[in-house]
């Protein structure tokens, strides 16, 4: 193995069902239901998935949902904005914890 991540592995995702097929079946059924059109369109769900993929920093998910977004009719402007949403929440999550830092520091300080 030259690298931990191999793009060809993405197409083999279903092999995770070996040795535990029932759990995999339940997961993949759920997964398909989640991404089917509902109150949100498939295109909107793919954009959310793309943003989350960048938050969890999963190369497989970024590959899969970049393609999915394009194939659902999104363009690079929309996809880049979705990544900024993920970035804003990640950055915001760090920054808002600064309030804890400030509260603790204030309690400890003269």
């Amino acid at each position: 193995m030259e690298t931990y991540y191999d793009p060809a592995d993405l197409a083999k995702f279903a092999e995770i069902g070996k040795d535990a097929p029932e759990l995999a079946g339940k997961f993949f059924d759920y997964y398909a239901a989640v991404f089917a059109e509902g109150e949100l369109t498939e295109r909107e769900k793919a954009l959310i998935a793309l943003a989350v993929a960048h938050t969890v920093q999963c190369p497989y998910c970024i590959d899969a949902y970049t393609r999915a977004c394009l194939e659902k009719g999104s363009h690079l402007g929309e996809m880049t904005e979705a990544v900024h949403v993920a970035t804003a929440i990640r950055g915001g999550a760090s920054l808002v914890h600064g309030l804890q830092m400030r509260k603790i520091a204030e309690k400890l300080s003269l």
């Binding site: 295109r43 393609r67 394009l70 009719g73």
Partner: peptide
């Protein structure tokens, strides 16, 4: 037609957008 090496969006959804 798609702008690259990927498949087109489903027609009904793309038409709406």
């Amino acid at each position: 037609n798609p702008v690259g090496a990927f498949l087109p969006a489903p027609q009904r959804q793309a038409e709406k957008k």
